[in-house]
Amino acid sequence: MTTPLLQIRDLTMRFGGLTAVDKLSFNVERGVIHGLIGPNGAGKTTTFNAISGFYKPTSGDIILRDESIAGLQMHEVAHRGLVRTFQHSTLFAEMTVMENVLVGTHMEFPPSIWNALSRQDAHDRSGAEAKAMEALDFFGLTGFVDTLAGELPHGHQRALGMAVALACRPDIMLLDEPFTGMNPEETKRMMTLMQKLREAGLTLLLVEHDMHAIMGLCDNITCMSFGKLLAEGSPQEIRNHPDVIEAYLGGARHVA
């Protein structure tokens, strides 16, 4: 058996007295779509923040391939092939759609003063724009190249956030509620695109509260509640798991 791409081991994240994530452990296999679900406030976003380096874990370990990435900064994690999107459309609102995705090509075309002053810049820019166009094309955004990101419709903003992440050419993408603000049709199209990404060899870890999307899309699901692991397994197993049913029916209305 091959080792998992991403291993979360006893991850704990405390804010003062509040333990948002409590000794959470799970594995994400290579080339799958892995869902992370749980009632609102279960600690899913916090888990993402700890994995991606936005927070430094209080304790526990995070292993990408065979290297510990716990405590690294977000850009260091990105350089190792793990890129995340944000729960609320976090974009460069004042910049154009193209410029947004160009920032995603930063690692492939690292800027420098020397490049800026020589012909290298024009060369890099055309290379970066070609790569950016690929990502925009994948998400159907080529018609908005010169639009300011802040002026895009909400569903398109979510797609742009993913295009920026895709332009980073990651091995694994962490998507926090990618379908919020999308209508059913957009959601369906986005699900197809995610399957295409998986076929291309990308690994996806996603938080989502659209149960229909989660069940239809994921190969494996991890369910957490109050910061702790509740259950894990295939969509079938999760759907029929008594603890999961309990967690969703018992009190928490928002299922994510």
Binding site: F54, H75, A78, M95, G104, P111
Partner: peptide
């Protein structure tokens, strides 16, 4: 462009490496 990105949304810039 990178300078602008750092200004407008340093979180996203950092997540992009």
């Amino acid at each position: 462009l990178t300078f602008h990105a750092v200004h407008w949304q340093d979180k996203l810039a950092q997540a992009s490496g």
